[in-house]
């Protein structure tokens, strides 16, 4: 499987990742090599095998639906790039 420029641009958009124009060629080539390595998997017959998502096959532990965390908004917003009146500021989305 090879990766082309369009794949890189499409995937980078899905990941919301800007890539410098000058890096696209190199990225395409490297990702092609990685996918060739990964494609060794395609030769393996895995029919009937159940995918393994958790090494110990544990199920989600549940707890009582009670509030355990107190409000720490001020502490958390101290490290935010921009806030105002307790809100995170980002560029205007709707005019």
């Amino acid at each position: 499987m090879s990766f082309d420029r369009t794949d890189v641009e499409r995937t980078a958009h899905l990941a919301r990742l800007s890539i410098n124009e000058s890096d696209i060629e190199n990225t395409t080539e490297t990702l092609t090599h990685i996918l060739q390595l990964v494609d060794q998997m395609q030769a393996v017959d895995t029919s009937g095998i159940t995918p393994l998502a958790h090494p110990l096959e544990a199920v989600q532990r549940l707890r009582a639906d009670q509030v355990t965390e107190s409000d720490q908004r001020d502490a958390f917003q101290q490290i935010a790039p921009a806030t105002e009146n307790g809100l995170y500021l980002v560029p205007k989305v709707i005019d």
């Binding site: 990964v38 998997m41 395609q42 393996v44 895995t46 095998i49 159940t50 995918p51 393994l52 090494p55």
Partner: peptide, 14 residues
């Protein structure tokens, strides 16, 4: 083809 296949192989390795 990728993620599920990788998880199936993960089971074979285990």
């Amino acid at each position: 083809a990728y993620y599920i296949q990788a998880q199936k192989i993960r089971r074979l390795i285990k």
